[in-house]
Amino acid sequence: MTSTVEVTDLCRSFKTSTGLLWRSHRTTEAVRDLSFSVERGELFGLLGPNGAGKTTTIKMLITLLLPTSGVARVLGIDVARDPQAVRSRIGYVFGGERGLYERLSAADNLRYFAELYGVSPRSQRTRIAELLELVDLSGREKERVEGFSRGMRQRLHIARGLLHDPEVLFLDEPTIGIDPVGARQLRELVVRLREAGKTILLTTHYMLEADLLCDRIAVIDKGQLLALGTPTELKSSVDIGQVIEVETFGLPQTAIDRIETLDGVRTVTASVRGHLQLLVVQGHPGAEVTGSVLAAVDDQVVHRVLTREPTLEDAYVALVGGS
C-alpha cells in the first residue's frame, strides 16, 4: 500500500541574479532533503514561516516545478516523469486574488477550466451548478469576476479546483485575507471535502486552523523538516509546560528581564496589544511558575492573568524560533 503523496529527499534550488552591470548569481536552496508522506484520506498540514519552502514543495507536487533532486510521487506517479498523468487527478487552489479571468463571469471561468480538465460536456452544466451551490455563489455566476470580493474569488477558486472531482487537493493558504466568518465557512468546506474521502495537503499561517483541521502536520523551515506529527504530538514534543499570559500596562524592561531569569521559566515574549502589553511566559514541563511570575510583576499594573495548556502556536514558536 503506497502513500497518496510520497516525498523522498526532495530538493529544489533557484538561481537568481541581481545587479545590472556586475551580475552576481546566487543560489537559493528553497527545499532541502525534504521527506514526508501523506496517506489516503488524510488532511495534512504544511507549516512554516515565510520563505520556508511550502509553496515550492507544493509546486513540485503539482508538476509546475521540476525537483532539483529527489523524488516526489502523487498517487504512485512520479511527478517529474509523468506530469500529465498526475495533473488530471489532482486539484490546486492558492489563496489571494489572482488566478482568475477577471473579464469573464464566474460561470465562464468554470467553463473554461471544465474544458481544460476534460469534464464531459454532458455533465458540465450540472457540475458547475453543483459547485456554485457548494461554494455559495449561486445567483452570482453571471457576474464578471472583476467585481467579486476577496472571499468570493477565493470560493470561486475552490470551485475551480474541484471541477474534475480530484482525488488529491493542494490548498496553499486558502484562507489568507478572508474575514473570520468567511474563513470559518471555508474550513467547514475543507472538513466536508475530507469527509468525502479526499486527500488534502494544506498550508496556512493560522495555527488555530491547522490545529482544528489537520490530522498530521509537518513543520518546515529553510526548506528542511523540523517536526512531523499529529497536533497533539507536536504540542507535547516540545518541552513546554504551562503557559501564563499576563496583560499589563507599562511594565518596565527590567521586570521582563527579571522574569526571564526565574526558575522554571523557558521563554518570555512581550507584545503590544492596543494600550495593553501582553506577556507570554512559557514554563518548563512540570514547573509551577505562576506564583513567581506574578510576584515579579507589580500587581498594580496587572490587568488579567490566564494560565493555559500549550497550544500549537506555542509549539510552533518553540520549534521555529529555536531553530
Binding site: K59, I62, T63, L64, Q84, R87, S88, Y92, F94, G96, R98, G99, L100, Y101, E102, F113, E115, L116, Y117, G118, R160
Partner: peptide, 18 residues
C-alpha cells in the same frame, strides 16, 4: 501576471491546444 498561466499548465490539456 494574473497567475492563470500556472493554472493552464497545471491542467491536463496540452498547452498547445490552449
Amino acid at each position: 501576471w494574473s497567475g492563470t498561466l500556472e493554472l493552464l499548465v497545471a491542467a491536463p490539456a496540452p498547452l498547445a491546444l490552449v
